[in-house]
Design a protein around this nucleic acid. Structure first.
Length: 199
DNA sequence: GCCAGGATCGTCT
DNA sequence: GACGATCCTGGCG
């Protein structure tokens, strides 16, 4: 299936399909933009998901309608960016783990205090700093300003996607629910085993 | 190049 | 009161 634009129906599907299909899409916030090269899927029945065990004030956004933004603070320091997936009432989200910078690169360098292209967005806490994503965006509509999100173009269309176990969690570590653009140098870490994601 | 340790705070038990 | 869906620095080889 190919999409000429990303709308609510794109995000209303299984979180695993959404996480895979987001690879190659471009996300922009204001002047800064990047192509998504690494994601992870989290679902309600998954002990590593914040929605596991039912809604709390923090996780309420996950249970709401799709195509919203879920932002939370990790380790008291980093804001992490997620896109809510699956229909209203079903809690699931895609963690955006890495981008390949595509626009506003000088701005990102200033915000990050780094020059190397691969140090700007190669991690979930890095890209939120580069794009200036903060907790105030929690619950915002992904399909409205300041966000812009577009499907893959050019060589990104049909890019090969590989899967691997998720990173930085202690529960449900066995699921291969991390999705990466094959061979991309901007991912947060290399993957241990190359598995082609089911199409 | 690699690894251990510290920073820092909202959320849930 | 403990624990993270992390990142950076410094020390060592």
């Amino acid at each position: 299936m190919s999409w000429d634009r990303l709308d609510t129906s794109f995000f209303e599907r299984s979180v695993h399909e959404v996480a895979r299909d987001l690879i190659g899409c471009e996300i922009a916030i204001g002047e800064a933009a990047g192509v998504i090269v690494e994601t992870e899927a989290y679902e309600e029945s998954d002990p590593a998901c914040h929605a596991f065990g039912g809604p709390t004030p923090r996780s309420a956004v996950l249970f709401g309608p799709p195509a919203r933004v879920y932002v939370y603070l990790s380790y008291g320091i980093h804001s992490l960016l997620n896109f809510v997936a699956e229909p209203d009432g079903s809690a699931a989200a895609v963690l955006i783990r890495a981008l390949e910078p595509s626009a506003g690169i000088e701005l990102m360098r200033e915000r990050r205090g780094r020059d190397e292209l691969t140090e700007l967005c190669s991690g979930p806490g890095k890209l939120t700093e580069a794009l200036e994503v903060g907790l105030e965006l929690n619950g915002a509509d992904l399909l409205a300003p300041p966000f812009r999100i577009a499907p893959p173009t050019g060589a990104w269309r049909g890019v090969e996607v590989v899967t691997a176990p998720r990173i930085g969690i202690t529960r449900a570590v066995e699921h291969p629910w991390r999705y990466c653009a094959a061979g991309n140098r901007h991912v947060s870490r290399p993957w241990p085993r190359v598995n082609r994601a089911a199409a």
